[in-house]
Design a protein around this nucleic acid. Structure first.
Lengths: 345, 345
DNA sequence: AGTTTCAAATGGAACGTTCCAAAGATTTTG
DNA sequence: CAAAATCTTTGGAACGTTCCATTTGAAACT
C-alpha cells in the first residue's frame, strides 16, 4: 500500500496533515475533532488501507475489548446455541470473544484460565467443567477479572451465575407426572457432582414431598447425559421390587435412550410408562412418541450472560446478582394417565 | 501482590537480580540462560504471581499467537464438532483461537474479517457463509493473512480448502441406490449457490451417467438443509409424472424430514422408498428406520484444517494444497431392493 | 601472560497506540 | 478591542515486551 510494512496512525497523520493524536481521536470517534478534519482523516485511512492495531491499543489502555468464553462441551447442541447467543451480543458491543473448549477437563480448564489472563481479557464467561471447585477460580480472582458462571453453578465460588431454573423445571415435570396419577417416579441420569443435578434432584424431591409421595433412593439412577445411560438406567430401574411407572429424565438425550429401552422391554412409552425430559432439544419433538420436556431458552440465557458481563465492565466492580432463566414444561405424548392412582383420588 | 498494579517483567528482573532481557529469555525458554539463573527467575515469577502480557509481546513481535476461526453456523452439530477439533489442535500448539459466528450473513462475515485483522491474527480458518464471493477475501489478502477455507470451497478464491469428499460421497450413495435397482432417484435439498451442493450434485450425476440412467432435472429439488425442507421436497417429488423410488438427500436432516413425509403419504421408507443421507449425524442411527448415510469425520477435518494453518505459519508463505477428507457410506435400513429393476438385469 | 573462544547476561531502541497537559484557534463577552 | 471562554489540535511520555549489538566473565588455548 504505502511505504514499507503496514500503515500506522503516524502515516495517516502525515498524509492528512494532522498529528497522530488527532488521528487517534478520530479513530475513537471523539466529538472533539472538527467534522471537516475527521472526514479528511477518514479518507486517508481508506486510501492507505490502514488497519487498526489493537495490540498496541491494549498495551496502552487499561482494558481490552476481549472477553473469554470458556466452554465445557461445545458439541452439546444447546451449549453451542448458548455460545451463539453470547457471541452475537458481544459482536454488537464491539467485544471480541476468545473461545476455548475444555471438554470437561479440569486440567485444561486451568490452562485456559491462564491463557485468558495472558490475553488480558476484560471479562470471562465460564461454563464450568464438571467437578470445578471454588479454588479453581483463584487465578481469576487475583487477576481481578470480572467473571460470570453460566449453565452450572459452583457453590462457594462467590461468583454470579446465569443458569436455568433447574429446580423449578424439575418440580414442574415431577408435578405433572404426579398429577397424571403416578406415584413411583424414577429420576434418571446425571451426576451428583454437578450443581445442575443437585438442583433438579431438589426440585424433584420437593414435588414428591408436596404430593405426599415418599422419596425412594432406589429410583434415582445416576449416569452420563447420554442415550446409552438412559437405556441402562431404565433397565436398572425396571428390576426394582416395585417398578416405577414414570421417570423424570435428567435430559432429553437420556429420555430418548429411555424410550428405546422401554420398547426393548416390551413396554410402550406414553402408553404404559411416562417420560419427561429436560432441555427440549429439537429431537424431542420428532421422537416417537414425541417427548414431553422442560424447555430452556439457552440462547436467551447466553445473551443474558453476555449482558451481565457487559454490565460488570461498565459499572466497574459492582457485584452482579445471579439469575435463573425461566423454563417451560412442554407437554407432548410421552405420558399417560395412570388409572389406579386416578381411582385413588 | 507486589508494588502497585500488575507485576511486569521488570519487577521480576529487579527481584531476581537480573536484567529484563534475561527474564524475557527465560519466558521464551531460551537455552542461552544458565539453568541456575532461569530457575531463580521462574521462582520469582511464581512468587509475584506474574502474568505474561501478550499484548505487549504482540506489539513488538511480527506475529501473534492468535488465529481466527470464522464459522458460518455453530449450531450445526457437526460444525461444532469441527470447531472442537480445530480448537484442540490449536490449544496444543499454544495458539489462541478467536471465534466468530457469522450466522450465514455476508455482512457479518465482512465485519468479522475486519475485527480479525485488527487483532492481528496470524492466520484464519474460514467456514464461508453461503454466497461468499472470492472478492470478499480481498481485505485478508492485502493484509497478508494465511487463510484456509473449510467445509465449503469458494471457487476462484485461490485459497486452499479442507473439505469432505462431497463428490465421492454423493457418487457412492447414488451408486448404492442404483445397485439396488433404482432408476428414478431424486436429489433433495441444498442450494445451488454453495460448492457443497455443486459437488454433491456432480457426484450424483456422475453415478447416474455411469449407471446409464439419464439425468432428470425434475427430480432435483432445492431447499434449505432442514427437516421441513426434506418434508416438502418429498411431497413435491412424489407428484412427478413418473415418481422416483429413491432419493439421495443433501443431508441427514433433510433425510429425516423425508422419512416423515413418506410416512404421511402412506409409504414406508426402507420398504417401498429408499433414502440415503449425508453427514451421518447421531440422529441418523436412531431414526426409524435407521438412515443410511455418507459419514464424514468432521472432527478430523477440523484437525486437518488447524494443522494446515500451523503448517502455513511455520513454512512462511508456502502455498498449501487443498484436501478432501475421505467419506464412508454407512448402510442401514432405509433402502430396499427394487424388483422390477432387479428383473431388468 | 596474553590472546582467543565461548557462554551468559545486558542496555536500549523499537513496536503503535492512548492520554495528559498544554498550546493554538476561534468565538463570545464585557 | 482586550479578556475570557470555548473549541481544536498537538507533543511527548508512557504501556510491557522483543531483539540486536555489546559487554562481561570464565575457560581454553598459545
Amino acid at each position: 500500500m504505502y511505504r514499507k510494512g503496514k500503515a500506522t496512525i503516524v502515516d495517516i497523520a502525515d498524509r492528512a496533515g494532522v498529528s497522530k493524536s488527532t488521528v487517534s481521536l478520530v479513530l475513537q470517534g471523539s466529538p472533539l475533532v472538527k467534522d471537516q478534519t475527521s472526514e479528511r482523516v477518514r479518507q486517508v485511512i481508506e486510501e492507505l488501507g490502514y488497519v487498526y492495531n489493537r495490540s498496541a491499543a491494549n498495551l496502552r489502555r487499561a482494558r481490552t475489548n476481549i472477553v473469554g468464553l470458556v466452554i465445557n462441551d461445545l458439541t452439546v447442541p444447546f451449549i453451542a446455541e448458548m455460545a451463539v447467543g453470547i457471541e452475537r451480543v458481544f459482536q454488537e458491543a464491539g467485544i471480541v470473544p476468545i473461545m476455548a473448549n475444555t471438554a470437561e477437563s479440569l486440567r485444561r480448564q486451568g490452562e485456559v484460565f491462564q491463557t485468558m489472563l495472558e490475553q488480558n481479557v476484560a471479562g470471562l464467561i465460564v461454563l464450568p467443567a464438571r467437578g470445578t471447585a471454588p479454588s479453581d477460580f483463584r487465578p481469576l480472582r487475583t487477576g481481578g477479572v470480572p467473571t460470570v458462571l453460566a449453565l452450572r453453578n459452583v457453590p462457594g465460588s462467590q461468583l454470579a451465575s446465569i443458569c436455568a431454573d433447574n429446580r423449578g423445571g424439575a418440580f414442574q415435570a415431577t408435578e405433572h407426572l404426579l398429577a397424571l396419577g403416578h406415584r413411583r417416579i424414577a429420576f434418571l441420569g446425571g451426576f451428583e457432582n454437578t450443581s445442575v443435578f443437585q438442583e433438579r434432584l431438589a426440585g424433584y424431591r420437593r414435588a414428591l414431598a408436596d404430593g405426599g409421595v415418599p422419596f425412594d433412593e432406589d429410583l434415582v439412577v445416576q449416569g452420563p447425559a447420554s442415550r446409552q445411560a438412559g437405556h441402562d438406567a431404565v433397565k436398572a430401574v425396571l428390576t426394582r421390587a416395585v417398578a416405577p411407572t414414570a421417570a423424570f429424565c435428567f435430559s432429553d438425550v437420556v429420555g430418548l435412550g429411555a424410550i428405546e429401552a422401554l420398547r426393548a422391554a416390551g413396554m410402550e412409552p406414553g402408553g404404559d410408562f411416562s417420560l419427561v425430559g429436560f432441555d427440549d432439544v429439537a429431537e424431542a419433538r420428532y421422537a416417537r412418541p414425541p417427548l414431553s420436556s422442560v424447555a430452556v431458552n439457552y440462547k436467551a440465557l447466553g445473551e443474558r450472560a453476555a449482558h451481565a458481563i457487559l454490565g460488570m465492565l461498565h459499572a466497574g466492580d459492582r457485584a452482579m446478582e445471579s439469575f435463573e432463566g425461566p423454563v417451560e414444561l412442554i407437554i407432548r405424548d410421552s405420558c399417560f394417565r395412570q388409572n389406579e392412582a386416578f381411582a385413588n383420588v
